[in-house]
Design a protein around this nucleic acid. Structure first.
Length: 895
RNA sequence: GGGCGCGUAGCUCAGCGGGAGAGCGCUGCCUUCACACGGCAGAGGCCGCAGGUUCGAAACCUGCCGCGCCCACCA
């Protein structure tokens, strides 16, 4: 053994319990060094690509990132099935988040970003990113992520930034990106515009205020004026119309008249619009085009004046007259007070309604008129819709396909400009006359007037504008027409795996922009995971105190345990409950797997996994475990088709623990501790084969422990000789249902004896003889050594004293030579009660079966084999009843 | 207001037309030569409620009740 291999090969002997600490770090370093995570476009195999949803550069690993390891499972599986698999890591510059982090640091020194100026501030952010950013990527290493680190990308690196500018300019050239003065969502705390989806609608208890606008010309007008209602009284300072429904008889003849603003020197016209709901309130609505989306639309339809009264910082401006300089919420109270004083206030009632809030700060969003850049999404969304309808992208879970369709059908234009500094600066320049020049490089002169005195737009792009390009810019795309080898090979990506919570922000936009620029969907499958919740299904939140730190679990239980605990609950689109108990349970499983292998290594006597002996030479137990292995393997493969990690885990867990460890290993001991050397060799061959296959099937899910054990099992040195690139198991044998049924007979008998022991306090150490009455005496006789060992019998004989139970074979009672001894132990009364219950059940069942068979409709519809099976079952049940009755009689004699 | 999902064992969930299941927890027995991070056995359920379809419903349909999520410009 050279020094090299000593570094990476596993220790020679195994401790009695698995301790992942140290093992995982050693193996990851070895994997990363081996270069096996890296793929090239011309590597052999059908391409398979996943891009890691780039975490925020400011991010620390939280438990939700654990679910990203589902991508690791996909990629590892793809590698093992011979595909040219790549998983690309990267980070998102996360505009507002990152800027906020650095601004908070500045605030501690009593500074704002404006004190530093744009350039110095950006330098400061870069410093922060260099020093603290990207820690999360190392934490992903700790989780075992087999990412191709040579391909790491950053949304704000030079190459990616060129692509972002190119996309902006191209869309502008196509007339889809435009600048406009429109009503946008403004967060007074962030001091930037937001897109629609960055606004949460939160149910809020507020007040509905009704007040009267007096007639400008009281003569001849009915009543004192028109009553309107609002939840935001301060906006009345920007009112420029009162709207009523055209068919509303109460207001017939009033349209065209005017009311007088009580606090400002202006008259306000009454207009008619059928948007107004006559049922609500007084049927008249105050219209503030500058501060309400509906009113803005109304203003557009009726060519109303828009008067902005609220400033970006949330205070009122000079248009608000005497209310100028008040904060918007103070102004609300002040306006109500003034209305009251003027005798115009009608009512104030409690009112629960939805209030738009900033998804980041929770501050109440203010609709404002503002100059911003917008992307016209309709053409892009239509293209994406067509692709979704055509099934170019498979959506898992399938029900979410409807979500994408609905979403894309109802999209509004996207406000892409943000009034912050950290991000891709908008490639637009203004001349003194206000002409706009959009260009890839800094222009020297205004495209309209030739002026050379140009100023670049101060704004930057929404972070999602760049991350939507991720599926192709990570592969070197910089401009339309680019065809790098990576793009040729790995675009479209194979799977887009994310939480369903970012489908609107990210997935749907990638779909649109990818199709628009590359004319192909960016990924052929969308796989949505759910949210990680606590062990009681509650949302994790700091205020509940139920937040789980993944690193804590990795340190105490290992990455494999955390991964398995997550996977065990992870099916498409379902939330994942996680508690310390789950992780603990997963770790106990790993220990089981570890010890099963440890046992095997002790008894294999150097046998390595290889070809199997001819099936006909193998024992029943050997053939049984091979059949079960094959059934398991097929199930696992099926679950890979829908990436159902919970079912993969459950299938393998059951096989490993219940079948391999609890039954097969115990059965194998009978041979391995015996003295038939040929039989031993055959069982060793089977054991080694099954163990390697099971480790291989488990590997994508729990890569560390399986790699470690596999190296012991095979003597592999590590490096490129890794389980990570071993071929995925194929069928070793057909599933033999007769063999499985036969082994079940053994299992039933052994279980029945154990149950008897437990019920009668017969300790395992006490061996006793047993006489069996069974229709499968031949089988049991063949397997006598096995049955005796597993059931703790010192003799197994066969008798017909008590009749066999028809249809089944193994439920047995003392008889023959053993009769006296066992009869003393059997609780005859309990046994009789049990049999009576069984008989009743059987009769019920029989009745149901008859009903079924009597139903011609059923017979016509059901497949022939179902009918046949049911007929047999009914006949069997009839026999069973007769038999049960005989047994009961026999038991009575025994007593 | 619209849409979606979920109510099954104490907890978390699987099953989604023909014998009520798993893990954890719980009870009893066992330190037997892979594992006490273990083994064996067991207790525990009007499968949310009410109708309907069916020979048969936890499963399918309708309604109701309760929980959760997403979307939405009724002031």
């Amino acid at each position: 053994m050279t020094d090299d291999t000593a570094m990476t090969a596993a220790p020679a002997s195994l401790p009695t319990a698995y301790d992942p600490d140290g093992v995982e770090q050693r193996l990851y370093a070895d994997w990363e060094q081996s270069g096996l995570f890296h793929a090239e476009p011309d590597d052999p195999g059908e391409p398979f690509a996943i891009i890691l949803p780039p975490p925020n550069v400011t991010g620390a690993l939280h438990i939700g990132h654990g679910l990203m390891m589902t991508e690791d499972v996909m990629v590892r599986h793809a590698r093992m099935t011979g595909r040219n698999a790549v998983w690309v890591p990267g980070m998102d510059h996360a505009g507002i988040s990152t800027q906020t982090v650095v601004e908070k640091e500045l605030a501690e020194q009593g500074l704002t970003r404006h004190d530093l100026g744009r350039e110095a501030f950006l330098e400061r952010v870069w410093e922060w990113v260099d020093e603290y950013g990207g820690q999360i990527l190392n934490q992903l290493r700790r989780l075992g992520a087999s990412l191709d680190w040579e391909r790491e990308a950053f949304t704000f690196d030079e190459q990616r930034s060129r692509a972002v500018t190119e996309v902006f300019v191209t869309l502008h050239e196509q007339g889809l990106l435009y600048r406009g003065n429109r009503l946008i969502n403004w967060c007074p705390q962030c001091m930037t515009a937001l897109s629609d989806i960055e606004v949460n609608h939160v149910e809020t208890r507020g007040t509905l205020t009704s007040f009267v606008y007096p007639w400008a010309d009281p003569d001849g007008a009915p009543g004192a004026g028109i009553t309107v209602a609002t939840t935001r009284p301060e906006t009345m300072l920007g009112d420029t119309a009162i709207a009523v429904h055209p068919d509303d008889e109460r207001y017939a003849g009033m349209v065209g008249r005017a009311v007088r603003h009580p606090f400002l020197d202006r008259e306000i016209p009454v207009i008619a619009d059928d948007w107004v709901d006559p049922e609500f309130g007084s049927g008249a609505v105050k219209i503030t085009p500058a501060h309400d989306p509906n009113d803005y639309d109304m203003g557009q339809r009726h060519d109303l004046e828009s008067i902005s009264v609220i400033e970006p910082d949330g205070t009122l401006n000079d248009h608000a007259g005497s209310f100028a300089d008040l904060d918007r919420f103070d102004a609300r109270e002040a306006v109500v007070a003034a209305l009251d004083e003027a005798g115009l206030l009608v009512t104030r009632e409690d009112y629960t309604h939805q209030v738009g809030t900033c998804s980041r700060t929770g501050d109440v969003v203010e609709p404002l008129l503002s100059d911003q850049w917008f992307l016209e999404v309709r053409p892009l969304a239509d293209k994406a819709l067509a692709a979704v309808h055509a099934g170019d992208t498979r959506v898992l879970p399938p029900r979410l396909q409807t979500f994408f369709v609905d979403w894309l059908e109802n999209l509004h234009d996207w406000c892409v400009s943000r009034q912050i500094w950290w991000g891709h600066r908008i490639p637009a320049w203004y001349c003194p006359d206000g002409h706009v020049t959009v260009d890839r490089d800094t222009p020297t002169a205004c495209v309209d007037c030739g002026a050379t005195d140009l100023r670049q737009d101060d704004d930057v792009l929404d972070t999602w504008f760049s991350s939507q390009l991720w599926p192709f810019i990570v592969f070197g795309w910089e401009k339309p027409g680019d065809h790098t080898p990576e793009l040729e090979t790995w675009y479209p990506n194979s799977v887009m795996e994310t939480g369903y919570d970012i489908n609107t922000f990210w997935v749907s936009r990638m779909l649109q922009i990818g199709l628009w620029f590359l004319d192909e969907v960016p990924f052929t499958t969308i796989w949505n995971h759910g949210l990680v919740r606590d062990g009681n299904g509650k949302k994790m939140s700091k205020s509940f105190g139920n937040v789980i730190d993944p690193m804590e679990f990795i340190e105490s239980h290992g990455a494999d345990a955390l991964r398995l605990a997550l996977f065990q609950h992870c099916s498409p689109g379902t939330d994942v409950p996680l508690s310390p108990d789950w992780v603990e349970g997963a770790r106990r499983f790993l220990n089981k797997l570890f010890n099963a292998t440890r046992f095997a290594l002790q008894t294999l006597d150097g046998t390595r996994p290889g070809d199997l002996p001819p099936l006909d030479d193998l024992s029943l137990a050997d053939r049984w475990i091979l059949s079960r292995l094959e059934a398991t393997r097929a199930d696992v493969d099926r679950h890979y088709e829908t990436w159902d990690f919970a079912r993969m885990s459950a299938t393998l867990y059951h096989f490993t623990w219940d079948e391999l460890a609890d039954w097969y290993l115990e059965a194998a001991k009978v041979v391995l501790y015996g003295d038939d050397e040929d039989a031993k060799a055959r069982t060793r061959a089977v054991l080694a084969r099954v163990l390697e296959d099971v480790l291989t099937l488990w590997h994508p899910l729990i890569p560390f422990v399986t790699e470690e054990l596999w190296r012991h099992l095979t003597g592999a040195d590590g490096g490129r000789d890794s389980l990570m690139v071993q071929p995925w198991p194929t069928a070793r044998a057909e599933v033999d249902h007769d063999v499985i049924a036969d082994f079940d007979v053994i299992v039933d008998l052994v279980t029945e004896v154990r149950r008897f022991r437990s019920a009668n306090d017969v300790p395992p150490s006490r061996r006793f003889p047993l006489a069996v009455a069974s229709s499968r005496a031949d089988l049991l006789s063949d397997q006598a050594a096995l049955v005796q060992a597993l059931a703790g019998l010192d003799e197994l004989t066969f008798t017909e004293t008590i009749q066999e139970r028809a249809g089944t074979s193994t439920i047995v009672f003392g008889a023959g030579e053993a009769q006296v001894e066992l009869a003393g132990l059997i609780d005859v009364a309990a046994e009789t009660a049990r049999l009576t219950r069984e008989r009743d059940n059987a009769r019920d069942f029989l009745q149901r079966s008859r009903g079924k068979l009597a139903n011609t409709q059923f017979v016509e519809r059901a497949p022939e084999q179902v009918v046949t099976a049911e007929r047999e079952r009914a006949a069997e049940t009839e026999r069973a009843i007769a038999e049960l009755e005989r047994q009961m009689a026999a038991l009575a004699d025994l007593a």
